[in-house]
């Protein structure tokens, strides 16, 4: 890998590069979705692909999510490897049958004879006053339903490696990218998501969490934007002499419970950060994983910093009041 070129990429560019490289090496890979052609994706993740591959393999679709996600399923079952974009995850309400009854169940209902090697990429997250039909994360809704892998990267390196792994996976993968991490200035982007990314294709294994900061006093678990909030909280806690360990889940399905449990074994304290709705979600699942394994690992009650169970409001101060942030994580630690 000595001749590998390393550049700093945004997640948007890393995703586009991953798709581009897979399309160059595998003629079965193609992209379908709304505004993924000439526009290059509303969130930049297919930029440049139309110019290189043309309209046959970079297919702008009508606004018909039920039809084109269903078509993704049919094409995948017939031997193609479609990458299908659901522009905002919030739009799943108009097309969920194609996703959870067809895409996610056909492998099972066929006894493993029908494979659905499809990537459904979709944007998540708020923080820019788009209100509750364009700002949700909904990670847990997808992760709750069996048969699809669910991943959400926090930085460009992981985004590229996970997208390549997702395209090569024989199971359907829901690739959830956070709008605030895309590197699109107009969305108030998180700069720390733009990182060094090798030009050569590589994979980041799905289902593996990563310890992104080592510590011994408390484990802070998050994904996507939550990881960045956790890292900022860890910096603040360090000023108080508290050593926080930060775990980036990266995948919700499969969920790397072992890495979380190992970390809590070391720290004895657990905070879960989640921008999805609090109840019945990621935070409950992660905490339960630890407690079921061995409840004596915890030296104090676990905490969660998640989105309250309310629709996401428009007004900036109201939305910011609801969103997880570093200060809330620090406060959660102090309350332990």
């Amino acid at each position: 890998m000595s001749n590998t070129k390393i550049r700093r990429l945004t997640i948007a560019r890393a995703m586009a590069e991953a798709i581009q490289q897979e399309m160059q090496s595998d003629p079965r890979v193609f992209v379908m979705g709304e505004d993924i052609g000439a526009l290059g994706g509303v969130f930049g993740n297919t930029r440049g692909l139309l110019e290189e591959f043309g309209r046959e393999r970079i297919r702008d679709t009508p606004i018909s999510e039920t039809a084109f996600i269903g078509a993704g399923v049919g094409a995948a079952q017939d031997g193609m490897r479609p990458v299908v974009e659901l522009m905002f995850v919030d739009f799943f309400g108009v097309c969920f049958d194609a996703i959870y009854n067809n895409m996610a169940k056909n492998n099972y209902f066929s006894g493993g004879n029908v494979k659905v090697p499809m990537v459904l990429m979709t944007s998540t997250g708020g923080g820019y006053s788009d209100a509750g039909q364009h700002s949700q994360c909904l990670y847990a809704t997808f992760a709750h339903l069996p048969g699809m892998k669910v991943v959400s990267p926090s930085n460009a390196y992981d985004a590229k490696g996970m997208m390549i792994a997702a395209i090569r996976d024989d199971s359907p993968v829901v690739f959830m990218y956070h709008k605030g991490l895309q590197g699109m200035g107009w969305l108030g982007t998180e700069a720390a998501a733009t990182v060094d990314t090798p030009e050569q294709p590589y994979q980041v294994e799905l289902g593996k969490a990563k310890i992104v900061r080592e510590g011994s006093d408390v484990t802070i678990v998050g994904l996507a934007m939550g990881v960045h909030n956790a890292l900022k909280a860890a910096d603040k806690l360090a000023e108080e002499g508290v050593n926080a360990e930060v775990v980036d889940l990266r995948s919700l399905v499969p969920l790397d419970r072992e890495t979380v449990i190992s970390s809590v074994k070391k720290t004895g304290r657990l905070i879960v950060v989640d921008e999805d709705y609090q109840s019945y979600g990621v935070s409950g699942e992660v905490i339960t994983s630890v407690v079921e394994h061995d409840y004596s690992l915890l030296r104090s009650g676990p905490k969660r910093v998640a989105y309250p169970d309310v629709p996401i409001p428009f007004a900036r101060h109201m939305e910011q009041f609801c969103l997880p942030n570093a200060d809330k994580i620090v406060a959660a630690f102090h309350a332990m």
């Binding site: 079965r28 193609f30 046959e56 393999r57 039920t66 039809a67 084109f68 996600i69 269903g70 078509a71 993704g72 399923v73 049919g74 094409a75 995948a76 079952q77 017939d78 031997g79 193609m80 479609p82 049958d97 194609a98 009854n101 067809n102």
Partner: peptide, 19 residues
């Protein structure tokens, strides 16, 4: 599920056409 085989049929047809 009623009508939900139609999208996959389009996709399979697209697959044949593309290949």
């Amino acid at each position: 599920i009623i009508a939900q085989g139609m999208g996959p049929a389009c996709g399979a047809a697209l697959s044949r056409k593309m290949q």
